[in-house]
Nucleic acid binder design. Structure first.
Lengths: 187, 187
DNA sequence: GTAATTTCTTATCATATGATAAGTAGTTCC
DNA sequence: GGAACTACTTATCATATGATAAGAAATTAC
């Protein structure tokens, strides 16, 4: 649990009472490599924190598996578009390695907000940071070639290449696995 | 001011006291067509609400003018990536028609949060909705052709085509003006 | 109202990526 | 440890978009 608290503290220091209330609504979970921790069609009511391991959010577009995002240790995994709208998600969360997660029940969290406004504040900060990342991703997708995006990913998260099958990286970059192979091949 | 209140109320009803506090930190402004209301390099400390008119957020990439987004009447115009990080924005806000805006001073707003948690809540909802839009935009950019994106835009916001120069629409769609012309031309 | 400027279109050629297919390498399963 | 499966690479061909250029249309300025 300490890793989650540390993560939140980096956004905003929390009172002991708030931390304890939060811990009270968290559960620790383990998942085996390649298993879905939330299926497609399920409404997102859980905020996951990845203690150990590696996860991705994915969906199917015309029967093609598309990776929307990767999440690494000590980061959240959330399908925001479902959590914020209350609608079923078209996306699933899958772990790509044996992983340890902390699950925060979102409804219980939102109920704590009135008693602990600092919890609302800290999660607002966390979500804002995710929003900024999403905005930056648009620029990257729209105005860089696939090759530039691949190289940027290598730089930002060199781990990805070692730990994630290339086919998932390809769809994350918005290209086919064949095209990614070609980019890697030339050099 | 009524239009802003109405907008916020659609996310969450607000107490009279909160509304009054909010109105106290707002200013009404007019801008002439094509003028920048916030320049590139300025840190975003203002949340704008577009009462009348039309605006875009844009920046330069290798000397090319890129439109990041359009905003229409009764919606916010915010450079979130600057507001949330406190860093200077590489983007500017420009009105594309004579426009009336309401400017909310962000620092004053954030200070009101402790006295009026409902203001923090309602703006959290507003920002979440913007976040969801951004997530959906990624899917649109990454997995639809320029032609599909253009048609989707026509459907979503038929006004755009009438009110916005095509060159701005082209960069918003992630293509050159020449390419947009071609798409419009074929049919 | 004409000239100057800006915006949009059309054409040509170059190039990056997609689709398909076939082969190689690596992994998993019994 | 061999068979079956999955992941990755390489090759060929088709296509959408970019770059450049030139002209038409629309807008703005005087």
């Amino acid at each position: 649990m300490q890793s989650l608290i540390k993560y939140l503290n980096s956004f905003m220091p929390l009172s002991k009472a708030a931390k304890e209330a939060l811990v009270g609504i968290c559960k620790e979970l383990q998942f085996k490599k390649n298993s879905d921790i939330q299926p497609i069609g399920h409404t997102c009511k859980t905020i996951y924190f990845l203690k150990k391991g590696l996860a991705r959010i994915y969906y199917f577009k015309n029967d093609i598996d598309i990776t929307e995002s990767f999440s690494f240790e000590n980061h959240l995994v959330v399908r925001y578009e479902s959590l914020f709208t209350g609608r079923p998600s078209k996306k699933a969360i899958q772990v790509l390695e044996d992983s340890d997660l902390i699950a925060i029940d979102a409804n219980q969290l939102f109920k704590l907000y009135s008693k602990f406004p600092e919890l609302e504040s800290v999660f607002a900060r966390v979500f804002e940071a995710a929003h900024v990342e999403t905005i930056n991703r648009i620029e990257s997708i729209q105005f860089h070639t696939a090759e530039e995006r691949y190289k940027a990913l290598l730089k930002e998260a060199p781990d990805v290449i070692k730990r994630v099958p290339l086919k998932y990286i390809a769809s994350y970059l918005g290209i086919t696995p064949v095209s990614l192979s070609r980019i890697r091949g030339q050099k």
